[in-house]
Design a protein around this nucleic acid. Structure first.
Lengths: 227, 227
DNA sequence: GGGTCTTATCGTCAAACTGACGACAATCGA
DNA sequence: TCGATTGTCGTCAGTTTGACGATAAGACCC
């Protein structure tokens, strides 16, 4: 076969919702290029490894999440010749949605990983290394869009959650406030979105709220609306 | 940098609507592996070439379309280690939507390219070489989904088109029949979807139909519904 | 125990949208 | 002139949305 070989990497946009805001896991680069900047976690795909396998491996390395139950999906691939000053690298970007774990970010990789507010990173393209601002933009937009027509918001929640907590996810990801009453109606009446567990919790204060689990639906008909 | 280099290719799913059916441009493979099977057009990304640039180059080679005005978007990247028996190749798949051109398929590449009904190819996974059945499935699903919430259907039409022609696109891509009256209402009343040109045509027989052009909208609110 | 605060949940109502379908308009070919 | 064909406008009932009032069920304070 006649081809010029290139480096292929998997980069991860790991999102969570903490304290009511959408956050992304980033690594502070300790070495040039882009030393001191934030970057997405990622690494090269190994010779006998599938792309998604590589992404899951990185995810586990960065978060300690034994990842089967974590939502992971491919977003896009970036291969502009000049995107990495060290050489030609094609990056396959993956989006991971994780619940707000009490787990510390146990980075086995050298650099210090931390959760950073997405809004802050999107503000200024120069806060992120390489073309990672673009990758983050695309991944966040994908997440925002998918909340509309898929039950994906539950991927940010623990196994059991209240409707308010679910609404909090939407509000954090979309950056809008939603009417609690209309949201409640929509979430509970959309077929297969959530199923009641039977128990209640008072962890949010106020009247005890029913607990729900994610339902079997794959798509939401009709979709929820942003704003 | 420490990595194992891989081959990176761009594969194309070029769709059009002809004779009321959704068709894809395929190449009959003349050499092993998968000799005699249909395959998606594609080729390796060159050392100094962007991924999309490579896709546009292939598109031009296969269709003769000087492609600026052609809709081209990335669908996904496939990199399972065993997907190409000749070696490790990572393929970035692109989706192209082209109008039904009178242009002959001027394949400069050796093999014979032709338009094939998508339904026929989706029926049996073994009619396509490599993992191209999966790629085609993903790309077609992407196209189907995007027709719902984006004005993309117009990419299948000539510059000026009638509402019926537009409806024909939806019917071919979705494989359903739509009510002409409701479709007409929806298409003309959705803000920015289509704008009237002022002229009419009788090319479909019957009463002359207004001609429209694609409008400025990027997304359709609310979306059209399949079935 | 009685207020008061907070969050959960149900209900109401008008406006918008959908899907089914009737009716009429404008052309062509016989 | 008479169908046949396709385009376009209307009507109507059922559904969904968005705004918002009202009540429920706890916690907290005195």
């Amino acid at each position: 076969m006649d081809y010029e070989p290139l480096g292929v990497a998997a980069d991860l946009v790991i999102l969570t919702v903490r304290d009511g805001s959408l956050q992304v896991l980033l690594i502070r680069r300790g070495i040039a290029p882009y030393r001191g900047r934030w970057a997405l976690p990622g690494g090269f795909v190994r010779p006998k490894e599938d792309l998604e396998e590589a992404a899951r491996r990185e995810l586990a390395e960065e978060t300690g999440l034994g990842s089967e139950r974590i939502h992971l999906e491919q977003v896009a691939t970036y291969g502009e010749p000049g995107r990495d000053p060290r050489g030609r690298v094609v990056s396959v970007a993956y989006l991971a949605l994780v619940p707000d774990l009490p787990t510390p970010v146990a980075g086995t990789d050298a650099a210090s990983a931390s959760w950073v507010a997405v809004a802050e990173m999107l503000e200024d393209p120069r806060r992120l290394a390489f073309d990672h601002h673009r990758i983050l933009t695309d991944a966040v937009e994908r997440a925002r869009a998918k909340l509309e027509y898929s039950p994906l918001a539950a991927a940010f929640c623990p196994d059991e959650f209240t409707i308010s907590e679910l609404r909090g996810i939407y509000e954090a990801v979309w950056g809008v406030l939603l009417d609690p009453r209309n949201f409640h109606r929509k979430a509970t009446k959309t077929d297969g979105f959530v199923v009641p567990v039977g128990a209640t919790t008072t962890r949010d204060g106020g009247r005890p709220a029913q607990l729900f689990r994610r339902g079997p639906a794959v798509t939401l008909h009709p979709p929820l609306t942003r704003g």
